[in-house]
Design a binder for these strands. Structure first.
Lengths: 326, 326
DNA sequence: TTGAAAGCGCTAACAA
DNA sequence: TTGTTAGCGCTTTCAA
């Protein structure tokens, strides 16, 4: 393909070792160094990073596995990850499991095979076996989330607590009828990922604590379900949605059906998607600081790689964003 | 690190070649094959893809360089690219130049150094030198865009035509006063990327053709500029914004200032961001079919890599999306 | 200051 | 059917 150190060595009449020294330091006479650098530049020498990785045992590449990039959530996170890692000259291998456990496994294998120096995962898998598998992976791993068991480094908000807080927030706004809307992620009928499950738990606890009946809307037909609920309920409901995009869809549908937010119903989302904060009505939502999750998971991973710290879990703060829909 | 073919060879008492044959085919006795596969599985053998790449001369990795992931635009595109490439077992190295020419150059070098098999770029650089540089890169490149000169493969909508069409569309809705809003991408004062420049040209041509005066709003203070314009103009204006997110901000600001869309002004965006099509008012916009751009650029790149086709440019169709804001 | 040699883990050509 | 050898491009001892 391109020019190699071997070529440079031959042309300059020196050994490959000398070429290396010219390029990356080591004791060498100035004129030989200059001569080599000169021809290197002239011939457009580019080091083969694969070869270097092979011998150094580090690829300067981080693998990332998330579900997809359709929502604003992961792109924002990845943006932060990329920008953090770039400072340390790491490259990012981004892959999408699309909620398929098999795909996730395959991608994991492939990334490991490519000798990534570390992994950041928002997993599709969530059974015991998988956690065990993750723990035994030969490279450091950071999982996006929290409370996933010992031995796994995580970064994320406390989903359970955040949801409880959201319920309290809504209660504080004089709603007695709180419905939690948790559609399946992606286009599969799965209950969704771990974070969303934890949110259900948080919702459940908070409702029990306040003695109110729990109302869950699951399934991909959540929009119709919400509309039906709205039509038939006797008391002004608040729909807490496990994602801003869902909240938008529900809100828009209810409006079209002639209902008005705040007056007839309340609605709240999760994620704090930028663009919705500039739209009216401003969506009330939970800000889970996704860029911070991105940045910190990247930083934690780097620490794990350089063994500056060992496995740990970082909890990112969350906060309620008062909009105009509750 | 992990187990290697060498280890397997020693353990099974065969040569490394035999191990390879067991793993990937070649004439081999069934029982030796099984024995090898068995121990390979037992020991969790994972091929070192870097080593393989080194000898095969192909890394099964595609490099992508885009500005950032903050908008919905590139994430959607990347989602499509990833899903296309995944079918062919390619991995994706995604990097962000953030509108810095230097960063872009650095990333380009680095990706090439990592021996990516191909590149997809939405460039920050746009001068002659850069195109020449791109042409001489040792791997196939697909650039997102159109009409960038000979010898460069491109995939994208005809930005100029799309903008002209948008102007016509607006004229058809009885606006005589069309302002084009083109904020700088990212947080730099740059005029923006090539596509946006081409849009300006398209706007210009269409306005000239209809004998109307051109009104451009540039700069990062476009929101205030738009508001000022609104306050001082005598004829109902239509703001054509070179991106849905900008349109949203302008719209929301104008509303807050007491103006009403359609009645007092019209507004139209670019990109057709999903979530905005579900919100009310539905934003009138130009759909540039970004998933299609993603998929086709990935496919074209694969063709270039396998030399099934040579350099070419693919034009993706665009279309106007009638919303409620014009 | 310079060079020779070995090796990272893999594949491929050629022998046996 | 199996093994030997060489080499991808680089780094890293160790010796000169």
């Amino acid at each position: 393909m391109g020019v190699t150190t071997k070529d440079l060595a031959k042309i300059c009449g020196v050994s490959r070792t000398t070429v290396t020294r010219a390029l990356y330091g080591g004791s060498i006479r100035d004129d030989t160094k200059n001569r080599i650098l000169e021809t290197a530049r002239a011939l457009g020498y580019q080091p083969d990073l694969l070869a270097r990785s092979l011998v150094k045992g580090t690829s300067m590449t981080i693998g990332v596995i998330v579900v997809d990039l359709r929502n604003q959530y992961f792109p924002k996170m990845l943006d932060a990850i990329e920008n953090t890692l770039k400072e340390y000259n790491y490259l990012l291998n981004i892959t999408l499991h699309e909620n398929s456990r098999e795909t996730e496994q395959r991608l994991l294998q492939e990334l490991i095979g490519h000798r990534v120096d570390g992994l950041i995962i928002s997993p599709a898998n969530q059974d015991r076996d998988f956690w065990e598998y993750l723990k035994n992976i030969p490279v450091p791993v950071v999982v996006i989330g929290n409370n996933l068991g010992d031995g796994i480094s995580t970064v994320g908000i406390d989903e359970e607590q955040a949801t409880s807080d959201a319920v309290s927030f809504i209660l504080g706004k004089n709603y007695q009828n709180i419905v939690f809307v948790v559609p399946p992620l992606s286009n599969c009928n799965d209950p969704g990922n771990i974070g969303h499950r934890q949110r259900v738990v948080g919702y459940s606890k908070a409702m029990k604590a306040s003695g109110l009946p729990e109302q869950l809307i699951l399934g991909s037909d959540y929009i119709e379900q919400a509309l039906n609920y709205m039509k038939n309920c006797t008391q002004r409901p608040a729909f807490l949605c496990s994602g801003d995009t869902y909240a938008i869809e529900v809100l828009s549908t209810l409006r079209q059906a002639g209902f008005t937010e705040v007056k007839d119903f309340g609605i709240m989302g999760f994620d704090c998607i930028d663009i919705l904060q500039k739209w009216s009505p401003v969506l009330t939502t939970v800000d889970n600081h996704v860029e911070q999750i991105g940045r910190q998971s990247a930083e934690l991973l780097l620490e794990l790689i350089s063994e500056k710290s060992s496995r740990k879990s970082i909890k990112i703060p969350h906060n309620m964003v008062s909009g105009e829909t509750i």
